[in-house]
Design a binder for these strands. Structure first.
Lengths: 215, 215, 215, 215
DNA sequence: CATTAATCGAGACGGTACGTCCAGTCTTTAA
DNA sequence: TTAAAGACTGGACGTACCGTCTCGATTAATG
């Protein structure tokens, strides 16, 4: 992977990777994933098909790479005092990207992963695992600071929160509006947060306000 | 659909549809959707390609049809006095099928749908819509009988409940164990059901919080 | 063929044959032979494909029938005092028809005949034989009246005269102009006729009349 | 054509053209042109269909190419002191080939050309034009050396001579015997050759009438 | 007048071949 | 070596006709 060991022969063109990634993403945004054939990428980028194949196994690998190296970094966890709030804001970020061209690409990758075990591992390890890990840390933080009850299972909570996002990524990404995210977040965490609040004994009076507000 | 309208011309061979559907499903189970080409279906079933094209617009249409007419009916909503209990039991049924061969088929169909707009519509209209509709009816019943609070949004609740199932269908169906389903169900409905229980004046003894009762 | 023996059952629609023949010829003139599929004939004429197949073996048979029954009669041997003149005028008629849509059809029929022995017999018997017979009669008449020398072989003469017509029917019918026919006729028959004249003791001295007339 | 211009990229497999041409001709001889589909050629030759399509626009182009590059060269004009004699001997060669397998191929190619405009052009340009050109040169030579009269039209003469060959190629190649060729040659060139002979021996003295006209 | 038998219209069906599109691999020259 | 160019194998697609095969509806002559 790291090309520090310079060998004999013509050195690899360092711009190729960037060109391909950018071309791929641009074409996906313009024409949709289906239309982005490897041949089109090659022709548009001016890079020979052979050169591309020397670096990526196949068409899907290019898209995976493009997605994981270019798109994923954009969707981080914003800073915020409240752990739950960080979670909520990140859900918004994710929903936004699912609605856009990143969602389009991820859909392709999922499509590929669903029928290609090797690819599935790549997606799992490169996409799912790291962000579940990050989210888990945050949730555990929330538990630690009593924003969530002690016995909360981070895994289950993540499924309940994020399951809907993937569900609609599959079937109708347009539904992943900001309003939707807030509502879903509230539905799932209402109890947990009120519980936490209850347990924390701070209680806002009879707590009714939280009933609605949550997050 | 209705045989009564016998028009002119040679009547369609009633066995063709059945043969194609069965062949398609069999091949999908054996080789995965990707490998099931229309040509393979034709050859295996003994039906001429042209005949197939007369009935289905393309390969995707066949697979969608096969799944929706043959697989879906197997996963219904069991009868039960409690609406929530019906929901929970159906989640178990769904999880079971997701873990089995139907899940394998659905995975490959989703794979196709993710990159084929037309197919996606078919899956959406034929799979998602009807079962959301059925589930919605049950949830509304639950609301009506006060098993769920008045202001519950069926759509959101479904997403929180079923999102996780689709999530793991994508990434690791084996995790969809009975225990998992119950836990998820409890996490999401804990509040709602306790609310209901509360409204129901605690009824089931002390009900040991959420633990087993839930549904 | 003759339908005098009326049997039981619905009698054949007498208009079908005419409709098909006319439709076929019209379509050939409009779109060229290649484009005239049986399906197009059926659709255009409003006659069911089945009905057509009941009467003709295949697409070629229709065109052959159309040609032999409709086109051929138009190309007869005009009346004229001089036998050779009849021959010449008929060559003009034939050249004209070769340049037009009849030529188009005949080309198709020849195309078919070249690869279908049965069809070749049909064309031979239905087209070649009768017109060689007719021409032979005329030539023999010409010989009898000394317009042609005694030892003239009708067969060879026909080949020399008509060979060029079929040659250009194959490769470029447009070249079959009236001028061309006259030139060819003159080339081939000049000697024969002058011979005849010589034999007839008129000798060429005078001869000038024949120069134009004969050919 | 010229190998010198070696460009980038994998060079074309030089054996492909040969393989295809040979396969095509062999199949034509065996099964007739109609049965020789591109798919059959591909399968038999072991060359991929796509490769074939890279070099020839369609099936017809292959067959035309095969005939013109492989068959035609076999039928040249033999050397001889007399131009007319060369012509006569070549007619014999052509008649012989028409009676044999080349004639069979040409028949089927003509069949194709008759219903395929593109093919017709190929046959015309590749077969008719060059051999008419060659024959014309010979005829002009004959005129120059006074074997033929000054005003002879090569085109007309060719039609009268060769028309019959194509006529019988179409309808009954077996009739193209050596005797037939000689008779036809004599019929058409009787005057001309006697003219030539006259010059050489008796001179035309008597024969004057023909002097002008001849063919 | 009902029966009978062939024709007609309509369309399903099996089948062949077409020409196109991509994928992924292989083989050259040039840098 | 790598890059560029492009030839090659191969699989599948969807289309166009072909000629065959059921059907129901129609239409006389027959009984």
């Amino acid at each position: 992977m790291d090309q520090t060991t310079q060998t004999r022969g013509r050195p690899r063109d360092q711009t190729v990777e960037r060109k391909i990634m950018e071309t791929a993403l641009r074409l996906v945004k313009k024409h949709g994933v289906r239309a982005v054939t490897l041949e089109l990428i090659a022709e548009t980028s001016g890079i020979a098909r052979t050169t591309i194949y020397r670096r990526w196994r196949n068409r899907s690998a290019i898209l995976a790479d493009a997605f994981l190296t270019r798109v994923q970094p954009e969707i981080g966890f914003p800073e915020h005092a409240s752990a739950l709030e960080r979670l909520r804001q990140q859900m918004h970020l994710l929903a936004d990207s699912f609605r856009g061209s990143s969602g389009q690409i991820l859909r392709t990758l999922l499509s590929e992963a669903l029928t290609d075990a090797e690819f599935q591992v790549a997606i799992h390890d490169g996409w799912i695992v790291p962000r579940r890990a990050a989210a888990t840390v945050i949730i555990e933080k929330a538990i630690a600071v009593k924003e969530l009850p002690q016995h909360t299972s981070p895994d289950l909570l993540l499924d309940a929160l994020y399951g809907g996002l993937y569900y609609w990524l599959l079937f109708d990404p347009a539904r992943l509006t900001a309003t939707y995210i807030d509502s879903l977040f509230e539905l799932v965490l209402h109890d947990a947060s009120s519980h936490a609040r209850g347990r924390a004994k701070l209680l806002k009076g009879v707590a009714t306000p939280n009933v609605k507000i949550v997050r």
